[in-house]
Design a protein around this nucleic acid. Sequence first.
DNA 1: TCCTCTATAGACCGGTCGGTCTAGTTGATG
DNA 2: CATCAACTAGACCGACCGGTCTATAGAGGA
Lengths: 189, 189
Amino acid sequence: MADERTTRDRLVETAAYLFHRRGFHGVGLSEILKLAKAPKGVLYHHFPGGKPELAEAAIAFAADVFAAQIEAAGAACQCRGQFIEALGGLTVDDLEATQFKAGCPLATIALETAPDDQRLSQACRQGFDLWIGVIAGHLGRLGSAAPEREAELVLASLEGAMAIARTRKDARIVLDAAKALARVGLVEG
Amino acid sequence: MADERTTRDRLVETAAYLFHRRGFHGVGLSEILKLAKAPKGVLYHHFPGGKPELAEAAIAFAADVFAAQIEAAGAACQCRGQFIEALGGLTVDDLEATQFKAGCPLATIALETAPDDQRLSQACRQGFDLWIGVIAGHLGRLGSAAPEREAELVLASLEGAMAIARTRKDARIVLDAAKALARVGLVEG
DNA sequence: TCCTCTATAGACCGGTCGGTCTAGTTGATG
DNA sequence: CATCAACTAGACCGACCGGTCTATAGAGGA
């Protein structure tokens, strides 16, 4: 059992890495297994539900990782605009570090499977809601009048901008979106 | 040759329909062929490049369809806010009409393939640019100071909101995003 | 009429998919 | 040391994948 965490976690992280880049249907089990240096039996031992169950774990893992990044960015910011721009920066860094091969770790799977596959789309939904909650927490602290709504708008804008940016191999649109949102104050309603 | 348009177009439209819902990798040729009631030979007669070439045509087709909808919405609007809300309305209608099974016809394929598959991601990019151009045209006419930037922000927000909405089976976030963007004026920068 | 070229039709192919199954290894516990 | 459960290992399976190939149908021109 000493190896449990290691092997299982390696599978989850490898799966997250690949799904992040090419989505659920674009990645085969054999590729995950090969990269994680694990035989097939291991996968079905840890994830009797097969590929979907592994993907569910990978989504939750990726959601937690990004939530922690948001949290850290928020903790370092003193005002609303600075925080929103920092979120844009996080996003841009990710895009550029992967040469635009990876964008949002949830969005691809969400679009491929929602709403037909309950399991996967719910996992994505929970990830989005987690992020919105964390963002809203900081926005509230920094004086936003409608933190939930504003967090949703910010996340949605960054998500869409990322998709467009990847087709262009140019992150400018993400920075622009963040800047614009940072500048305007959302009117309540 | 009299049937050329019919069969070929039926293939393209069917492919667009299915890719729209489940993305590129999520749909098999056999499914497209079955739904379009066409044998395999026909596909490779019209699209020697196979699935990617068919997808390219489907993307261009879907992009044109939505561009025409944007154009029509713009022509009917007298002010900037009204136009942006109309775009949100278009999006919501599409989501609800398909019970959230279909969102943006380009985004899923874009996320699955960009930037590795040149062909498909460029086709998506062109679609996005087409839409941004049409939106910017109307925003300029309606008095926007920075129509291109504003069009990008609006499109990105709607794209992202759509992805989130599909996981929730609730279009509220799309309407909220459109309303918020309609209300604030973008400061130039 | 016959020829040709486009379009339709679907059998067929090797490869890969996700998933199952059985055997071996390991480590904790009695 | 024996036992047993957790884990590792990979051969194997049927189904389906995208793609190729050959045969046929049918319209238009010579």
